[in-house]
Computed example of a mutant assay.
Amino acid sequence: MAKHHDSITDELADFIRTQPMFFVATAPIEGRINLSPKGLDGSFQILGPHGVAFLNVTGSGNETAAHLLQDPRITLMFCSFTKKPMILRLYGRGRAVHRRDADWAALEARFPERPGKRQIVVVEVTSVITSCGFGVPMMDLVGQRTMLPDWAERRGEDGIRDYWREKNLTSFDGLPTGLLDGE
């Protein structure tokens, strides 16, 4: 039932674009494996048949960025909760792009304006696998939560940077995230 694909085809890109959420998995050399749900409209962009990027907004941890500094392997998973089941996994090598990086501006322009944007994670996709998804329940989407963008808006840029210094400079396992390097 699993099918291997050479790239992100137009059909697979359409599937990705219709999913309201996705999951990101990374792991350091030693320590916790991280699996995070991601959402927010417009936060995922397909860069080409072998490239994707997602906006990594401020959150309680910064595991993805820390892990990618040690080991660039990353898996992204999309699954349908609607009538037509499917699971799509993108395997690849990722890197966190920060505001100080040369490619930040070009990448940032691909995403909607969002308060609290922290990094853009770029993934070079090396493998695409789909599977049936027959065991995934069907659910109805009520809507996107606004709590995180609302929180970031209330904190403002200075408040967000203070939060980064307090909570996002290291992972839960104490690994550096590279977030404010050079400042």
Rank of each mutant, 00 (worst) to 15 (best):
Q119R: 08
P72N: 14
I120S: 09
L55W: 12
V123A: 00
T177E: 04
I29C: 00
H98G: 04
A25G: 09
F44L: 14
T82R: 15
F54C: 01
V52N: 05
A152R: 03
R154E: 11
I8M: 05
R145F: 04
R93N: 10
T177G: 02
G31T: 00
L47V: 04
R114L: 10
M77A: 09
P149E: 08
L90G: 06
E124I: 01
M21I: 05
E11S: 15
D14R: 11
V142N: 00
K38E: 01
H5K: 00
Q119I: 04
D181V: 06
P49A: 07
G39N: 14
L47K: 05
L40F: 15
G61P: 09
M138F: 02
F172Q: 12
F23Q: 03
L12N: 06
S7W: 00
D71F: 06
A25W: 06
E124V: 06
P49V: 02
R161K: 15
G159F: 13
N62G: 02
R161I: 15
R95N: 04
G51L: 01
L90C: 11
R110D: 08
P149L: 03
R89F: 07
L169C: 07
F172A: 14
Q19P: 02
L107T: 08
A27Y: 07
D140N: 10
L180D: 10
L35P: 11
T170Y: 04
T130H: 00
E153R: 09
D181F: 03
I16N: 13
F15D: 04
V97E: 01
H98R: 15
A2K: 15
Q70Y: 02
R110L: 14
P115T: 13
M147N: 10
S60E: 10
S43H: 08
L180W: 12
L76P: 03
R32T: 11
F15Y: 13
C132Q: 09
D101M: 02
D103H: 08
D6W: 01
R161N: 10
G42Q: 05
K167L: 10
M139A: 12
Q70C: 03
F172M: 12
L55S: 15
R99Y: 03
L76M: 14
Q19L: 04
R165C: 11
E11A: 14
T64P: 13
W151M: 12
N62M: 12
F172S: 11
F134S: 05
E124G: 06
M1F: 02
V128L: 02
M139W: 00
N168W: 04
I87G: 08
Q144H: 15
E183C: 00
L141W: 07
D6M: 03
A65H: 05
R100P: 00
P112V: 00
V123M: 04
E63F: 03
Q45N: 08
P115F: 12
R161P: 00
R165W: 07
K38A: 07
Q45M: 08
Q119E: 11
E124T: 07
N62H: 06
P85G: 10
